[in-house]
Design a binder for these strands. Structure first.
Length: 892
RNA sequence: GCCGGGAUGGCGGAACUGGUAGACGCGCCGGACUCAAAAUCCGGUUCUGGCAACAGAGUGCGAGUUCGAUUCUCGCUCCCGGCACCA
């Protein structure tokens, strides 16, 4: 066994070892054992004192803006935050080492419902609760060692922040991009308040338990649909975004080409419907309208059954998922509509799956060619008229299934025989000719409702005057400050009750007037914060020239759950800001990384009433029994508990693992290393206590290897590649192969797990390497230096100390990324796989420059290969250079 | 329901452009060190058969394309995320 140089010193414990290479003015003493707390405290102090990560614009280097989605200050960091921010920090530090001028800021998405819920529960004003949480979470982020420019920190609940979105709102109002209309909300009749969807549980208010009603209220809307085409089309240019996110946004915008057409009804009323399938028009068997449709309201008075039906629809869910899965019900309205082409009478029905807020509140129904209409027609005995048949003329049982694909028209009068696309055009033209229809482009995307009947949000800066109507708050009166000493109690609207807030005078006429008491959707704040970081200290303008210096964000990192809403709203805002002349780029985020969830096992105990008491994984011990079954027991007491599978860490399942406990026990570097190593960033990350131990063990192993180098070796010697032994040359090749791989993994691929694995492999080889002599020692040191540099973005504290232990000075965070020496990669022989009919039969060593013929001869020469081709004739030889030879052999 | 994603050893995962399936880590087994334990170090570890050499099977299920498929195509199953007032 190799004697450890450490034992030569006859020391134990954490005795100080002074080495010539580290006794520098800025050096940390390198102790024998790795003490994360000591290392991290001193390195963080140095970053803080040196303001090492504050970004300046007047820097010759190319800027790189790296941003992680800012957190909602819920109280404590959770594992999802640790993962998100570590990914961002690794990218930022990697880019910094690649010579870029990196901006990485951090802030707080500080408005939102949880603060109001906390106020209700604990009687603390949301403002105080939020600011306390921010302080606590800031401390935790600093403890994790993220390279943030804290001088740009912002919180969206600060008037200095939200005043600018009030300002922008007024500009948009002036431009006509903001309007007011009635929209439906969840109304809790007991608490007299509007509920968020998440506060409605099984149709009842979460606090009062009262059945939630749908109520119409005037709401502010932003015309995002004006930008629908641009938002859709520029997705094609976002090559740095995951294809799945772009696909989700495309579907969300849902642009379609169709026809809007009119059915005239008895009594001269007109029902306008939109369809993407005018080719099926001859198959219409009824028209369905929303229960809230005005045509319905006129008829409920003398039809009690209809009235009852409409009433039963009043409290139906309106989420898309509710509509799609609920039982489809309807009632005939007793009205007939005239088919725009044939003039035939088709009945009008009221249906619970049609929404007034969607399109025109009416749809044409073609049971033969739409699944939902088909089911509805079968249920109510409505006719199913087939007007499209499969292109190949194949049989189709239309009673059994709707035929929803394109095909050829049948039973459609003059259009019979046309293909669906031909009929689309012909029918559209026929409708246009009669003035009963027009081609239209439609969007699934709806205008963005930005009003919230909430207290803890940014006030909407308008005043309602009895005489003048809606009057904008003059720019000089901004910001409209939200009073902060309010404690919501869950009933009513706090701002509507607060006379000192809403009682005001009309800026136009001076009469007594009422201030708007709705606040903005919190997506409003998060739609432009990324830009404000660039000009965070500017109290005279929303943004300034520095925005264009940094933007667009080079790398944005956040959860996949924001794939549509937040990311679409931010893209929309960016275009609004551009059109205001505040920026010049078209898109806010060039490259996007969406990280997966953090999941953990769940454990529970069944209650007598059938409910489940969830038990935190920290209290449970899992063992494998002899029969291979796993058994979960309480650590205290040994009681057996049930296993509930892997779930996203959450309060409701009590399966959260507190990052603070992890940091306290192993240090920030281990927390960072584990979260980066356990899974690729875009997949879900499974929590594992033993995995954390493994990550920590690796850092201790690395520390020990550097410590040994540090003690036995004098000043670094540059290896002379031409004079190395085979073993040293092989190790050096491994180093440079690793540099090439890790550079690609961190830069292009963003697979941090494989970058760490490659460094582990390299360290394993360094550990096994026991060649004596100064050249070997210098190769070893070159390898260790390489590992320290390559791991620095991931474990920045320990790598700083190891960097100095290896005889270097200054911040490793500012060091240059290692470069690949192409000469080190040269090989003379390669291992080649030999297959016979695709099955591996041998591995042979061949000269790297062997010709095809030589390779084939060497492959055929192998004894095991010969055994497998004996009696067969080789028909074909496939050679993949550097990889394999495949002999295709068959019997004669 | 619609849209998006996932499934590979006992476990997390690797295999990047169709080319040696299981890198790296965890767990487990064996050994060294120790009075002993912990820690640490060394070795083994997809399954089946075999002392071994080696052979057979194997990437959720069922087909297909190919000399060759975890990778491409078609058809399924199960699990997860989003669905407009949670952020």
């Amino acid at each position: 066994m190799r004697r450890s140089p450490v034992s030569d010193l006859g020391r134990d414990g954490s005795a100080l070892v002074f080495c010539p290479s580290s006794s520098t003015q800025d050096g940390f003493p390198m102790l024998e054992s790795y003490d994360p707390l000591e290392v991290e405290t001193s390195v963080q102090k140095r970053w803080e004192e040196g303001r090492s990560f504050n970004a300046r614009e007047d820097d010759g280097r190319e800027p790189f803006y790296c941003l992680s989605m800012f957190p909602y200050p819920s109280g404590k960091l959770h594992m999802g935050h640790v993962r998100n921010y570590t990914i961002g920090d690794v990218i930022a530090r990697f880019q910094r080492m690649q010579g870029r001028n990196v901006l990485q800021p951090m802030g707080w998405d500080a408005f939102g419902l949880p603060a109001e819920n906390a106020a209700i529960a604990n009687g603390v004003p949301p403002a105080r609760w939020t600011r306390q949480n921010i302080d606590q979470m800031r401390t935790q982020l600093k403890r994790l060692g993220f390279a943030y420019d804290w001088s740009r920190e912002l919180a969206t609940c600060d008037p200095e922040y939200y005043r600018w979105e009030q300002w922008l709102f007024l500009r948009l109002l002036e431009k006509g991009l903001v309007y007011r209309k009635l929209a439906t909300v969840n109304w809790d009749p007991v608490d007299q308040t509007v509920l968020a969807n998440e506060q409605v549980i099984d149709g009842r208010g979460w606090r009062s338990g009262a059945v939630v009603e749908r109520r119409e209220m005037p709401q502010w809307f932003l015309r995002i649909t004006d930008y629908a085409d641009e938002l859709l089309e520029s997705l094609d240019d976002l090559e740095g975004w995951p294809e799945q996110v772009r696909a989700m946004q495309r579907n969300w915008i849902g642009r379609s080409e169709g026809v809007e057409l009119d059915f005239t009804c008895d009594g001269a009323e007109t029902l306008t419907v939109y369809t993407t399938r005018p080719d099926t028009l001859m198959g219409v068997s009824y028209v369905a309208v929303a229960p809230e449709h005005p045509m319905v309201a006129n008829r409920v008075a003398n039809d009690p059954e209809l009235a009852a039906f409409v009433e039963s629809c009043r409290n139906r869910g309106v989420a898309e998922a509710d509509l799609a899965t609920m039982e489809k019900r309807g009632r005939p309205l007793g009205v007939e509509a005239r088919h725009p082409l044939t003039g035939a009478a088709v009945p009008v029905w009221v249906a619970n799956f049609v929404l007034m807020e969607y399109g025109t509140g009416a749809v044409m129904s073609v049971p033969a060619h739409d699944e939902r209409d088909h089911a509805f027609a079968l249920q109510y005995g409505l006719p199913i008229l087939q007007v499209i048949e499969p292109m190949d003329g194949g049989a189709w049982d239309i009673r059994e299934h709707a035929f929803t694909e394109h095909g050829r028209l049948v039973g459609s009068g003059e259009f019979t025989g046309m293909s669906s696309p031909e009929a689309f055009t012909a029918i559209a033209e026929a409708l246009e000719a009669r003035g009963l229809g027009r081609r239209r482009r439609n969007y699934r995307l709806r205008d963005w409702g930005i009003s919230r009947q909430r207290y803890w949000g940014c006030p909407i800066p308008v005043i309602h005057c009895a005489g003048c109507g809606v009057v904008p708050v003059p720019e000089s009166d901004l910001p409209v400050v939200l009073p902060e000493d309010v404690i919501p109690d869950g009933s009513g609207s706090p701002l509507a009750r607060l006379a000192s807030f809403h009682e005001t005078r009309c800026p136009k006429c001076g009469q007594r007037a009422r201030r708007e008491t709705d606040t903005f959707d919190t997506f409003f704040e998060s739609s432009w914060y990324y830009a404000r970081y660039c000009s965070a200290d500017n109290s005279d303008a929303m943004l300034d020239a520095r925005a264009d210096h940094w933007l667009p964000v080079n790398q944005y990192v956040g959860g996949i759950e924001h794939a549509v809403l937040h990311l679409l709203y931010a893209r929309f805002f960016h275009k609004l800001l551009r059109d205001e002349g505040l920026l010049s780029s078209d898109e806010p985020f060039t490259r996007l990384l969406t990280q997966g969830m953090v999941i953990a096992p769940t454990f529970y105990r069944e209650r007598p009433d059938g409910g489940r008491d969830w038990i935190n994984p920290a209290e449970v011990e899992v063992t494998r029994e002899a029969d291979g079954q796993t058994l979960a027991r309480l650590r205290a007491g040994g009681e057996a508990v049930s296993t509930g599978g892997m779930e996203k860490m959450s309060k409701s399942k009590n399966n959260g693992v507190d990052p603070q406990a992890l940091i306290d026990r192993y240090g920030a570097d281990t927390a960072r290393l584990f979260t980066m190593f356990a899974a690729p960033p875009d997949l879900s990350l499974e929590w594992s206590d033993s995995g954390v131990e493994g990550a920590h063990r690796f850092l201790k192993r690395l520390w020990r290897q550097v410590f040994e180098s540090h003690c036995i070796e004098s000043a670094p010697v540059r290896p002379r590649p031409d004079q190395l032994s085979d073993a040293s040359r092989a190790l050096r090749r491994k180093l440079h192969e690793t540099i090439a791989k890790v550079t690609d993994d961190l830069g292009r691929r963003q697979t941090f797990n494989t970058a760490i694995a490659a460094n582990m492999e390299l360290l394993n080889e360094v550990t096994r390497f026991s060649v004596p002599g100064t050249e070997a020692v210098s190769v070893r040191r070159e390898c260790l230096t390489g590992i320290v540099l390559m791991l620095n973005p991931i474990v920045p504290h320990v790598s700083q100390v190891l960097w100095e232990g290896l005889g270097h000075h200054g911040l490793v965070a500012n060091a240059a990324w290692p470069e690949v020496d192409p000469n080190a990669l040269v090989v003379d022989t390669v291992t080649l796989a030999v297959q016979v009919n695709g099955k591996l039969r041998a591995q042979i060593q061949v000269p790297a420059d062997a010709s095809r013929e030589q390779l084939e001869a060497l492959a055929r020469g192998d004894a095991n290969v010969q055994r497998h081709i004996e009696g067969l004739s080789v028909l074909k030889v496939i050679v993949v250079p550097g990889r394999l030879v495949n002999l295709v052999a068959r019997s004669q």
